[in-house]
Design a protein around this nucleic acid. Structure first.
Lengths: 396, 396
DNA sequence: ATGAAAGCGCTAACAT
DNA sequence: ATGTTAGCGCTTTCAT
């Protein structure tokens, strides 16, 4: 084995020396410098290249099997041997190669996370929750963002599966009609959706429809009658769709007429312009809302800015309700009224469920609906009317 | 080869069937179900387990080398053969195993990203920039957060290196005294720092000291004389330290006395309480600032909230200057004055530099300093005094 | 308690 | 243009 080892080393060393021809012939085949030997390669004195388990074994005077055991189940090896191995590991600065382990083992310890963007703090918070749950488990996160682009979603999932992640945590633009999920289910890939509330899927979310309805009901209770909803492209987001349904529910329930949603292309940069355009539509019509339900907080912020630029005051000329519960909303003045969802918990629970699923303890389950909360705020004006009865208390 | 293939399949199938003893004996060794065979395992009809390159080869009637070539350099194979391989790939839903490739190849296509937290939008923005730069290159992100904890930093780097990432993008709590960086450099691991401006390192950042000085100078120009700086634990963050130096520079330059920084433990949850405590210190002293320079925007927001809870008005009773340039700051009223740094660009440039470095086109270089900008805002009151001369225009 | 060896999926050198 | 084969680093089975 010793000579074999030496040969291996020799090859690698010469490989670094610009593939010196004479030496290349001496061994077969001569691969390109492999990933595991990338660092240190040009130091020709003493120990060369990144040490592997065989180097450790040689140094400790035992077999690679023993080294492996010393690393993974130390109690299986004699204390004396263990000490020698540990010494060798330290001296060589041996760093176990996760790739070798992953190729051999039944798990990679990788979790694929796919989100639309990190520009929305909702998703950043969610990752914090995921990391918190993964905490000590030693799982690593592979992160991809998709910008709500179905094409990118498909590619990203494919990439993550090629990387053999143990499971996926994902937010799709639209989970309802998405064949990708059937594929994942058919392939038995453990996954949990985040935010998408497709009931039949393993998912962690709020009940978007109900939450939106609760929010709009709050507006109605505050005396508003003409309420419009504004959202990103409805067809592209199942959450927007559900929230729109919730808006309709609340309006209908109160005997009011829901209006078509004002759609704003989220991905287009010129947000303020689009908002003004949508508002122009509104102005043209005979109908004039006193309150705007925005399908998410980021949109609400953009809308508020656009309204102010148009000279409208909030909430006097227009009340605003968002959705998400961004912490920043509370720092605004007036504070942003919003329907808040527990982003950190969504991430945390999804990660925990995924771990259970990966471990085979569950099959992933169905949708887990977490509680939402309507957060009153200064962006909503109470058009106090005696007729409406008791004003309910909303959760802060 | 055919029988060999069959044997392999058989083994795997039976392995899923709870390690049926009689069959276990027939082949050697019988590994645990490897990672690549995790999905589909329990379907006993038809094709079983995840296909590998040999399955494709068999189906296409060629060798695995040909399949590999068809996948990686299609023009090297005869169109007819290529078609057969592609058909086989499609029929079997073959998904190349990145782990095998990584083990064999000289690169993993993995980029390790280590950041303190995603709770601060600065870092989320930075990731957006990184992703934008990585765009089409097919590199994947492995993400770890450290909560400014040196212990976690060490572990995270070790984990990422075990995963054989091609390079690292990282923000350290304190890069200056950090031996980890020497280790990385010694091991020839390509890396770029984000935000840390340790000049001798490969890093992308603003000049924190100068930027802070510019910000404080703005305060001085606005007529403030008693200016305090408030920050997270100074010893834990090189940026906070440099920004404090910048504060001192500007004060001294104007003939004013810099004060010791009011330190607030960032990681401790009870932020408002800590702020009040720090302010109490201030009140006890004879000295009373009219302006507060906060070492980052998130801190500024917390401070503002605490001040308001204490009944102080901003900017009338106290002016506030932040650092970071969070987009949210512009939505507040009053808008947050801040020293903005180009987070997205920091991420983008660092990623680009890292790619060059990985490709061997550069050695990583030294610090790249990007331009900062002082953003005036409503949180700063102009104590207009005729004596100060011309009021400069600050970049919006 | 330890060692020998097979093989995870893939790529590339060499041979044909 | 295609096939054969070694081997990347590791874990685990079986044998000792």
């Amino acid at each position: 084995m010793k000579c074999c080892l030496a040969a291996r080393k020799t090859r690698v060393v010469y490989a670094t020396l610009r593939h010196a021809d004479a030496v290349m012939k001496t061994s077969y085949p001569l691969p390109r410098i492999p990933v595991c030997k990338r660092f240190h390669l040009l130091e020709i004195k003493g120990d060369i290249s990144v040490p592997d388990i065989r180097d450790v074994a040689q140094r400790a005077g035992c077999s690679i099997a023993t080294v492996s055991r010393a690393l993974n189940s130390p109690r299986q090896v004699r204390p004396q041997t263990l000490a020698r191995v540990q010494a060798a590991v330290a001296e060589l600065k041996f760093r176990p190669n996760a790739i070798g382990r992953q190729l051999r083992g039944e798990r990679t310890g990788l979790i694929g996370v796919m989100l639309p963007t990190l520009g929305n703090p909702v998703f950043a918070d969610c990752i914090e929750g995921i990391e918190a749950a993964l905490g000590g488990t030693g799982q690593r996160l592979v992160l991809v963002t998709t910008r709500y682009d179905p094409e990118r979603e498909r590619n990203a999932i494919e990439t993550l599966l090629q990387q053999r992640v143990d499971g996926l945590l994902l937010t799709l633009a639209d989970a309802e009609s998405n064949p990708l999920l059937d594929d994942l289910a058919a392939e038995r890939v453990p996954f949990q959706l985040l935010y998408n509330d497709a009931q039949i899927r393993p998912a962690v979310s709020v009940d978007n429809r109900l939450a939106a309805a609760d929010g709009v009901k709050m507006l109605i209770d505050a005396g508003h009658r003409d309420i419009a909803m504004i959202s990103g492209a409805l067809h592209a987001s199942d959450r927007a769709k559900r929230r729109y349904l919730g808006y309709c529910d609340a309006m209908t329930m109160a005997g009011l007429s829901p209006r078509p949603a004002l759609e704003i292309d989220f991905n287009a940069g010129a947000r303020a312009a689009h908002v003004r355009e949508a508002l122009a539509q509104r102005t043209d019509a005979a109908w004039c809302p006193t309150a705007l339900f925005c399908s998410n907080d980021l949109l609400a912020l953009g809308v508020m800015r656009a309204l102010r630029e148009s000279g409208l005051r909030i909430p006097d000329d227009m009340s605003i309700l968002g959705f998400d519960g961004l912490a920043f909303g509370e720092l605004l003045s007036p504070t942003l009224a919003t329907v808040s969802q527990p982003s950190v918990d969504i991430g945390r629970h999804a990660a925990l469920r995924l771990l259970d699923q990966i471990a085979g303890r569950t099959d992933g389950g169905r949708a887990l609906i977490l509680p939402h909360a309507v957060r009153m705020g200064g962006t909503v004006k109470c058009r106090a009317r005696a007729g409406a009865g008791v004003t309910p208390d909303y959760v802060a």
